[in-house]
Write a protein that binds this DNA or RNA. Structure first.
Lengths: 219, 219
DNA sequence: TAGATTGTTAATCGATTAACAATC
DNA sequence: TAGATTGTTAATCGATTAACAATC
């Protein structure tokens, strides 16, 4: 039941991917799947799938494979989705708005309970029935409502201060979209930094590589 | 000048991070930096930094370190940012809109030239002076304008068809925000899939782990 | 039972770190 | 020149893949 060894981040970062593919299988009414079949769908080795899953327990059955629904739920639990983390968004700019409207979060068990902004013009309004509060009322709000995760999407200058306030309030997770890497020393909080444009630059690299090599062969 | 060996994706995915940290140094008017100093700022080893950079060439100087501006520009070139990739966004929903308004893209050398949507109510409008065209005019548009990258942010059902059209038009890069992993067989196009909620689930995992371990020690 | 497929150990491969000679 | 710091080779570590006995 409990973990034998610390699971590597390489494995952990694959869990959401397994989860998505299992969701797709469920939608197709496929009830069982072997590591071999799943490996072909996902483009990774069957060995890796079995190795990965066995970090957390023996979810399969010899001669049968894995029950899709069972495995889906188990991986969901491993990622804590059954905690139904209560989530707030801080910063209702374009990105904050997009995130508030992203259905995938609810679907994955994250519950958006409030939005906070500094702009008086949007405070009092709402997005998808979620109230927008003034950022100054954050401390007060957290006194009465459970907040597990804060999604941060504020300008560069305000990022460290807002992050500090969030950490002080005992909020346990921070998903940071602001263009500044936040590091650990903010108390005990778990942080996940997002840099959207990093992916775009990797795309740029791969395109550039392809161009250079085709030039060499003489396109 | 040209690459000795194929550079591993592990290295490539660190390039944007170097690029960001160098941009920060530039803003601070720091002109030179040693791998040691940079390693402390970034939280990785100096050895890794030197190893990474030497995949692409000797950008430093013994006894001196690296010239920040020079290294910044070199890494930018490696990622092809000097190509000034012309970019379109397909799908102007909440996420498409947020992406259109994201200043970081322009800052990183990606030029947004058009937005496409299927909804007649938004077609003809614009976001940040960028025209919104009807998706049906995509083929016509590409005949007269150079398009290097398409950013896809359309509903699940439409994803494969739109991706197929994009690939057929000879567009070289696809940055896919639709909730469906796109795989290679679409011609010669380079694809980068984004799954925002994956990061949120990793955050969930880490929070869950922390909770479980603190329960064990008896919080 | 025979066939299939897991869980797990062992072998391989690749990535990171350490060390140091080269050189600015 | 002496000191600093790179570029690069060698050593270590970790992650992936292969193999197979266990077992449904």
């Amino acid at each position: 039941m409990s973990l034998k060894k610390k699971v590597s981040m390489a494995v952990v970062r694959r869990l959401p991917r397994y989860y998505r593919y299992l969701a797709d299988l469920l939608k197709l009414d496929i009830t069982r799947i072997s590591s071999k079949e799943l490996s072909m769908r996902m483009g990774i080795t069957a060995s890796q799938i079995r190795q990965d899953l066995n970090c957390f327990g023996g979810f399969g059955q010899q001669g049968y494979g894995y029950n899709v629904e069972f495995l889906y739920n188990e991986i969901g639990n491993i990622m804590g989705l059954n905690n139904r983390y209560q989530t707030i968004i801080i910063g209702s700019g374009h990105m904050g708005k997009a995130l508030a409207n992203y259905e995938n979060f609810e679907k994955r068990g994250f519950k958006l309970v409030g939005i906070f902004d500094i702009n008086p013009e949007v405070v009092g309004g709402s997005i998808k029935d979620i109230q927008i509060y003034h950022i100054d009322t954050l401390e007060e709000y957290v006194k009465t409502e459970r907040v597990d995760i804060a999604i941060l999407s504020v300008p560069y200058e305000q990022t460290p201060l807002v992050a500090d306030r969030v950490a002080r309030l005992g909020i346990k997770g921070l998903w940071n979209f602001s263009p500044m890497d936040l590091k650990l020393p903010y108390g005990d909080i778990v942080i996940e930094n997002v840099h959207l444009s990093d992916g775009l630059m990797v795309l740029g690299y791969n395109m550039n590589q392809k161009m250079l090599s085709s030039k060499k062969t003489g396109d």
